[in-house]
Simulated assay, not measured.
Amino acid sequence: MEAVAAAWERYAAGRAPRRTMNAVGATTWLNWTQYPDHGPSESLLGSVHGRRVLELGCGTGCNLAHLATLGADCVGIDIAPGQRAKAEARWGDLPGLTFRTAEATEFLAGHPDSFDVVLSIFGPVWFTDPAILLPLVRQSLSPGGVFAFSHRPARPDQEPRGALSEARAVSRWDYSARQWAALLSSARFTDITAEIIGPPAGECEGTLVVRAGR
Score class of each variant (00 low, 15 high):
Gly46Glu: 02
Tyr11Asn: 12
Arg155Trp: 05
Leu208Asn: 07
Trp180Ile: 02
Thr33Pro: 06
Val4Phe: 08
Gly110Gln: 15
Gln179Ser: 11
Gly39Trp: 01
Cys62Glu: 15
Trp29Val: 11
Ala6Trp: 02
Gln34Gly: 14
Ile196Met: 04
Asp93Met: 06
Arg214Leu: 14
Glu195Asp: 11
His111Met: 12
Ala6Ile: 03
Thr28Ile: 01
Ala87Asp: 05
Glu88Lys: 04
Pro112Trp: 09
Thr105Asp: 08
Leu64Val: 04
His111Lys: 12
Thr33Ser: 13
Pro199Lys: 09
Gly202Asp: 09
Leu164Met: 12
Ser176Thr: 15
Ser165Thr: 14
Arg52His: 14
Asn63Val: 07
Asp157Ile: 00
Pro124Glu: 08
Trp126Asn: 14
Pro143Ser: 12
Arg211Asn: 01
Thr190Asn: 10
Arg152Ala: 15
Met21Gly: 00
Gly71Gln: 08
Ser186Asp: 15
Met21Glu: 15
Leu67Cys: 05
Thr190Pro: 01
Ala23Met: 10
Ser186Gln: 14
Val210Ala: 01
Gly14Met: 04
Leu67Ile: 04
Asp116Asn: 11
Thr101Gly: 02
Val4Ala: 04
Pro160Val: 07
Arg214Asn: 12
Thr20Glu: 13
Arg84Ser: 05
Ile197Thr: 11
Ala109Met: 03
Phe147Thr: 01
Gly59His: 01
Phe189Tyr: 14
